[in-house]
């Protein structure tokens, strides 16, 4: 028996919005410690990994490990039927070929139930080694989204260059070129606007903007995004999954990490 309840169903909607264009089908691995998902896009250039901690749920029970393979586009459709303030419960019985989704409205007299068929998916699970990254840039998620969108007007790829003075995002295309430079800054009043750069050695790598623009669909989850880079390994774009409660308290309940293989010179 698996049962997981989130008090703010909108968090699940945001997670699905962040991944369902990159991957259409994926398996959730459910264990006593939480739910996780790992999947590559069809061209195997990028990989998304979602992790939700069991203790981030208001109720979490997983008697035995389960793999819930499903069509994420369909899951997204059903989650659209939940109100943003609804409590959302996911239930799966051992050996069943479907999961149940229960939406409880805040008024406490309206309950909706939906079922989705599960799928047997051939999971290609990749081992992601622990890496210590040369460069880590923490910046406003909305700023990163804006930069990726703007530079995609110029070209298909962005070159991210880090030096002592800051981080440069640049693109070149038929019409010309463009770049956005950010230097480290911190604001006591607005920590969500901070840019934090930690760097061991200068580095420059090029990535396809098509994928980065898909990753920025996770922007509503968290005010800051972390980019981690090292030579010859995929870029990691990480968003914390933050649940905002009625009292305006913020609770980190997991993360989404996107990995993107770099473009390299022929």
């Amino acid at each position: 028996m698996f049962e997981a309840k989130l008090d703010r169903g909108i968090v699940l909607k945001k997670i699905l919005d962040a991944i369902n264009q990159l991957v259409n089908e994926a398996s959730w691995e459910c264990t006593s410690s939480g739910m996780s998902l790992q999947a590559m896009d069809t061209s195997h250039v990028s990989l998304v990994a979602v992790n939700l901690n069991g203790d981030g749920f208001s109720k979490f029970r997983c008697d035995r490990n389960m793999v819930l393979g499903m069509n994420l586009v369909n899951l997204s459709k059903i989650l659209k039927c939940a109100g943003n303030d609804d409590k959302v419960t996911i239930k799966a019985a051992d050996g069943d070929d479907k999961i149940k989704l229960i939406f409880e409205a805040p008024n406490e007299y309206e309950v909706s139930q939906y079922e989705i068929k599960l799928m047997n998916l051939d999971a290609e699970y990749l081992g992601i080694p622990e890496t210590s990254y040369n460069v880590t840039v923490k910046m406003p998620a909305a700023k990163f989204q804006r930069i990726c969108r703007d530079l995609n007007q110029i070209g298909d790829a962005v070159t991210i260059s880090c030096t002592k003075s800051g981080v440069d995002f640049s693109a070149t295309g038929d019409l010309g070129n463009g770049s956005v430079s950010l230097s480290q800054n911190s604001s006591f009043d607005k920590p969500e606007d901070n840019v934090t750069i930690s760097m061991q050695e200068p580095l420059s790598q090029t990535f396809a903007l098509k994928y980065l623009n898909q990753f920025t669909k996770a922007t509503p989850l968290c005010s800051q995004v972390t980019l981690s880079l090292s030579p010859d390994v995929p870029l990691v774009v990480e968003y914390k999954i933050i649940e905002e409660n009625e009292e305006d308290s913020k609770n980190e309940i997991g993360h989404i990490r996107y990995y993107l293989a770099p473009k390299i010179d022929d």
Binding site: S46, L126, G127, I128, P234, A261, I264, D265, D266
Partner: peptide, 14 residues
């Protein structure tokens, strides 16, 4: 010209 690499170049099957 830059070539796009894929995940399998970096991450192995676990």
């Amino acid at each position: 010209k830059n070539q796009q690499t894929t995940m399998s170049k970096y991450f192995g099957n676990s």
